[in-house]
């Protein structure tokens, strides 16, 4: 494996005494699909907020392609090539699907691009070409999730942070999202996934990081994680089944 595209060292975030992320170090290899899992409240979303510059870290450093990005403004980080899609889709409500995705192509990673081509490609990849002229607010949850992905893909990111892209979807829809993520990876984009659907995580991931109560408790390949007693212990007592474990 080559040098990691995202390297986080000793990352810590405290909110008034509560430690949301505690001394977490992870390395995401370029071109991989990695997953970040853990019970509710483990600090996964805070972790994403730190990497995208939405929150400033209390301690630690974040390197993207070897370059320090902690302390940079959110839009600068996006321009460097990190895109994020949210669990609760945040489309531009009054714009059409096409205009939403075009917005991603217009901005996103800095550099020359052909906006219309990128937009069309992202729409096609997410299977939204037929709905391009629909207003974003008219979409169902499943399609909103795809719109979120399409807009992020149109940003031409090097790293895609996907926050629970399968939450609330039925098995068919989940399958489609997993398929989209795989295609994204084939285009050379590294993916870091936060997901509760363990079946999806186990099938799609090259490498898994497990957070519990803000700390990293394990990492490794999917089948090792599935058998790890610490991971099983962390999930016990939560209503969330620990997948095939």
């Amino acid at each position: 494996m080559s040098e990691p595209i995202l390297a986080v060292a000793g990352l810590t975030k405290r909110f008034r005494g509560v430690v949301a992320v505690n001394d977490v170090s992870i390395a995401v290899p370029e071109g991989s699909i990695c997953s970040l899992i853990g019970p509710n409240g483990a600090g996964k979303s805070s972790f994403f907020n730190l990497v995208t510059g939405y929150l400033p870290p209390s301690a630690g450093e974040i390197r993207f392609q070897g370059r320090r990005i902690d302390g940079l403004d959110t839009h600068r980080i996006a321009q460097l090539g990190i895109a994020r899609c949210f669990q609760i889709a945040k489309p531009f409500p009054e714009l059409s699907v096409l205009d939403n995705v075009r917005m991603g192509a217009l901005f996103g990673r800095a550099g020359a691009r052909d906006v219309e081509t990128e937009t069309a490609a992202a729409l096609a990849l997410a299977g939204l070409s037929d709905l391009a002229d629909r207003p974003a607010i008219s979409l169902t949850v499943g399609y909103l999730r795809r719109l979120e992905l399409a807009r992020a893909i149109a940003q031409r990111p090097l790293l895609l942070l996907a926050d629970e892209p399968c939450a609330g979807l039925n098995p068919t829809e989940t399958e489609e999202v997993v398929d989209i993520l795989r295609q994204v990876r084939q285009r050379g984009v590294t993916v870091l996934l936060v997901e509760h659907d363990m079946r999806a995580v186990m099938r799609v991931s090259d490498h898994i990081f497990v957070l519990d109560a803000g700390s990293k408790i394990a990492e490794g390949e999917p089948d090792r994680i599935a058998r790890d007693p610490r991971v099983i212990a962390a999930y016990l007592g939560t209503p969330e089944p620990a997948g095939p474990a």
Binding site: T52, Y54, D73, T74, H75, A78, Q79, A83, R84, K90, F92, P93, E94, L95, R102, M103, G104, L106, F107, G108, R109, A110, R151, Q155
Partner: peptide, 19 residues
Amino acid sequence: HGLLAIREDEDTARMLGVP
């Protein structure tokens, strides 16, 4: 276009790389 994104949802606009 950036201003339009800001009008629609400023946080998302910033997340997309709009300065």
